[in-house]
Nucleic acid binder design. Structure first.
Lengths: 219, 219
DNA sequence: ATTATCTATAGATCTATAGATAATGC
DNA sequence: ATTATCTATAGATCTATAGATAATGC
């Protein structure tokens, strides 16, 4: 692997593990056993590294959210979308953690992220519409569908923060992909009232697969 | 006002305006025209300041979420809960922005915040149950109600991040309380399918008051 | 010749404290 | 006497670059 790619790879790893805020260019260089000077030869600064990593994330999610235009959606499609999106969130989990700061520090990223969000919202909206066509959920007026799509987005993008802040033990936050995917349970909860009788049972069974195993801490 | 209180007040102000990450103890002292030494006489470090501010926030939200046990809930109660919670979010908006880092840096705060979250989730759950009793929404099995409460929490706590990251213009994020309260529209969207015929119209009218005025950016 | 890497470091912060001095309360 | 404040600074980072050196490609 070229040094430039190694830097991107290690940065992602360190950012995810320790949080972007806790990782400096020195840490990244030290982790790769290269000099800081070398790192700065390949990237102008930390923002540039983050920008490149975001581009990877964006491409991945755009790829996951492709929507077939020649056939109806199936339950398998729905399961794939949910699994994939949470896989993506997991692989680039540092991004959503410090997102506001990152966007404040980099105008390019701000614009790009805004467009990305709108594209995702559009995709969720289309998925809802096509689930209506496929008879999985009842059709909804456009306005309700938009608001529901936005709620789905809010739940998806906030689930990890919830796990890390509310759920974690005193010992510090150790998050697993399994826990993260319990977010799917929450997303499907949003759809329950709209399920059609023909698909209700199957969707509820899908949802059940992601039910949190461990009891929540006492309320 | 005593210096100690001035420090808390100014810190909150600066944190909200610029983000906790961008505000150092030096900035706070300079803003108050006192010496850094003086600041450290009153607080051991920045974490201590944040902890005290969190205690204020916690007390405020706990106060807002009190639930009457001698009468049924009304629509006015519902409107009050929603308005108040978003007011609280606004006044202490820096907290949710850098929450994960703050909890990682302060174990006391981590435990305290976890308990706070669970208390809030419990309150939302109880409010749902009492709205069922009052006939505003249909009664729900406990399990669905818990999952719905959690979704309400996720939408509430993530709405501001959404505004700041996705909605903001290139010119940088200028967020208003009015925009923030459009989150109420999203929260009430979650309840639509559960509304009873007798209250449906009134709740939809309440929701309508918070509909975003400006069109969302094109998707 | 060009590309990649290292050494060394200037300059900018930031945190937190020691020790002196001023203000206040009894 | 005690409480509040200031001055001055040590020590710890971190970013980013200049300039030297090594490795690579034609």
């Amino acid at each position: 692997m070229k040094t430039r790619d190694k830097i991107l790879f290690s940065s992602l790893e360190l950012f995810n593990e320790r949080g972007e805020r806790n990782v400096t260019t020195n840490h990244i260089a030290a982790h790769l056993a290269i000099s800081p000077g070398n790192l700065y030869y390949h990237f102008r600064n930390k923002s540039d590294i983050i920008y490149e990593i975001f581009l990877e994330y964006e491409a991945l999610v755009d790829y996951y959210l492709r929507i077939p235009d020649d056939r109806l959606l199936t339950l398998e499609d729905l399961a794939f979308y949910l699994e994939s999106v949470f896989d993506g969130l997991w692989s680039y989990r540092f991004l959503h953690r410090d997102l506001e700061f990152l966007l404040d520090s980099d105008g390019r990223l701000r614009v790009r992220y805004r467009d990305f969000t709108n594209r995702c919202l559009g995709a969720i909206n289309t998925i809802f519409a096509k689930m209506g066509e496929a008879g999985i959920i009842q059709g909804q007026p456009e306005e309700l569908r938009s608001a529901m799509s936005l709620n789905v987005w809010l739940v998806i993008t906030n689930w990890m923060a919830f796990l890390r802040t509310a759920h974690a033990s005193e010992n510090g936050p150790s998050l697993s992909l399994t826990e993260l995917k319990q977010g799917i349970y929450q997303v499907l909860t949003l759809e329950i009232p709209y399920l059609t009788p023909g698909f209700r049972e199957d969707v509820m069974a899908l949802r059940e697969k992601y039910r949190p195993r461990l009891p929540e801490p006492a309320v």
